[in-house]
Design a protein around this nucleic acid. Structure first.
Lengths: 126, 126
DNA sequence: CCGTATCCGACTTGATACTG
DNA sequence: CAGTATCAAGTCGGATACGG
């Protein structure tokens, strides 16, 4: 989570970007948001769509993405229970191209593996 | 390195691909190979280009990439010291598009950060 | 419902040393 | 040069608890 104590500081923006985009779950979270109406999903929806992620890690990743302006958060505290929504920003939506590229690459070179379309698959509906 | 003990088994090919491509250092190694003549680099050259990677991790990643047919390895043991070369396969070269996308995204949305072109930058010469 | 906090074990990565 | 061995450090996962 913190990049302060290593050599990230010395890296240029692009190198830095690769590093946090490739953190575990990050791309899959972005994809889940993309699939929601208006690129928006609630915390519990994300949790349900990513069965193996823990609330702790999901919370951490969302905060990181918010800090990078890839995701914006909106809370409606006027109702109970509180309603919170996470939405891809414009820059966030543009990251979908990266994920789509990976999908096409995988379909081209790895088609001999498990067929897509199962409930477990978070990428193949892209 | 081993995906046997977690839920990776239940994932489809594409999801699986995201997981290993986003392991730390993987994309940067692919990029370094891409920048070499004939998409080829020696172990020590990769090590030198990625100052913060340890030989252990570099070795592990190269083995993983070789197993995925993204990198091919050639060893000339007839000479001393032994000469080993790692080359991007056709599928490996096609992954450069993913990295290039990330670069363009970063340059578009993160240009207010550290300028590129320094020795430390492994991506901006792409 | 929406999280954050904690504790802890497992896995991943890092630092350093060392060999053919 | 091209790695492997060893051990330390960091990140992630699992369970559970708790507060807004």
């Amino acid at each position: 989570m913190s990049f302060q104590n290593n050599t990230m500081d010395e890296c240029c923006t692009v190198n830095l970007t690769v590093r946090y985009l490739t953190k575990k779950w990050t791309l899959l979270i972005i994809l889940e948001l993309y699939k929601g109406d208006n690129y928006t999903r609630r915390f519990s929806e994300l949790k349900a769509s990513l069965p193996d992620i823990t609330p702790k890690i999901l919370s951490e990743r969302l905060q990181e993405l918010e800090a990078e302006n890839i995701v914006s958060k909106k809370i409606d505290a006027s109702i109970v229970p509180v309603k919170s929504e996470y939405t891809l920003t414009e820059s966030g939506v543009e990251l979908i191209g990266v994920i789509r590229d990976i999908k096409y690459w995988a379909l081209k070179w790895k088609i001999d593996n498990i067929p897509c379309g199962s409930q477990e698959c978070k990428l193949c509906k892209l």
